[in-house]
Nucleic acid binder design. Sequence first.
DNA 1: TTTATTATGTGACTTAGTTACTGAAGATCT
DNA 2: AGATCTTCAGTAACTAAGTCACATAATAAA
Lengths: 227, 227
Amino acid sequence: MREFQTIPAWVASFPALKTITDPVWCEVSNNARIINLPVNTPIFHAGESCENYLLVLAGSVNVQKVTEDGHEITLYHMQPGHSCELTTACLLSGSCYHAEAITTTAVQAVLISKKEFMQALNGSDGFRKFIYSSIDSGMNELATLVEEVAFGPMDQRLAQHLLDSVLCTNPIKTTHYDLAVELGTAREVVSRLLKKFEHQGWVKLRRGEVEIIEKGELCTLVKHHAP
Amino acid sequence: MREFQTIPAWVASFPALKTITDPVWCEVSNNARIINLPVNTPIFHAGESCENYLLVLAGSVNVQKVTEDGHEITLYHMQPGHSCELTTACLLSGSCYHAEAITTTAVQAVLISKKEFMQALNGSDGFRKFIYSSIDSGMNELATLVEEVAFGPMDQRLAQHLLDSVLCTNPIKTTHYDLAVELGTAREVVSRLLKKFEHQGWVKLRRGEVEIIEKGELCTLVKHHAP
DNA sequence: TTTATTATGTGACTTAGTTACTGAAGATCT
DNA sequence: AGATCTTCAGTAACTAAGTCACATAATAAA
């Protein structure tokens, strides 16, 4: 029996969790496991049941849909400070996954077992609030994605993604194929658009790399919905 | 104080709710209001806060995204026996709506106030289970929609929607514009595809109506992912 | 009936996705 | 090192889908 338990250090990475002081959450968070995963590690597959809640401390996990005929599209990224909304939904309902997740970098994550997750959900008002608000933002992000996929011009979507990525490293380490999966389009389409960007002098292309030269021009492309 | 309350009759329309016997749910369900709405009544708009939980008894409500430049796409339909997953997410997190909802027929619905919803959520295991599983199916439906919008050929998506609609009435009462909103495409695209279907002898077109002649042919179009 | 509104048809054009290749860069093998 | 393999990128030709600018037809309103 641990009488005077403290909140573990990893919770500091989650602004919305670190204010929780319930004894239940204290117990559950202390029972969580921290795991380290190399790049390209599958986290879950469609059809699998969900046994753990997941919080990302470092790195990035790609959550995507894959169709029968091999088309892929990224739904969202699990990134530091965030959870996986599809996992949350699965745990809440006890159903199984309907998407794929794979690490795109080395990842450090917190694992909370289904049982402990349920205890925290039932016993901690703060944790429940956290889960509810992440469910809400997950739903709204998916709805927004539907809208973007349906109506967003490809050049703007590509530019936006490059701008998001360049915040980490400037020559962005990625292939045209990876960019295509990100946007749910074909590799050839990405290649064509990138060449166009390169001719404008906005980017410089090398094998496995996209270097952003004119951030500002990419921004105006994104902003101007009708140029 | 009502000591021997019974579950109200409308609950029978919801298979997943009618087995719940908690006193809390009994109380909440008895306090629900039943409302009747004419066709084309807005239920909520983006930016509004969410004050009531909604269950549909009869009719259909369209939930859709509308972009700045006027493009529209249907996310899902609230139909008899179902709730509105975006409303649920809003209530859970206390945030506001990020989509639009409007009745597409006359609608009879059950309204549960935010306060009563929260009481049922906290006090009734059965109701909580119902909410959790509807959140999960809502998320997965949205994720599947992303996939369909990204990769589904338009003719197949149109055929599928006609097949869904024809279950109600055979000459389907709809306009090409409405079909376009349903699929998130342009009216002209729908007009062209419908003309093609008509030339094949699969449908008969009249102003404001699509009559399905060859259900089987539309089915094979949908099934054969690569014809 | 005249006029206005809503629904549909169509051609010309742009953007996006597919098919079928090509060659080039890096990795692996001997 | 040189030969080979694998992955990545480029491109042309075609089909599908979305946009723009209309014309025409059916219904509703004045």
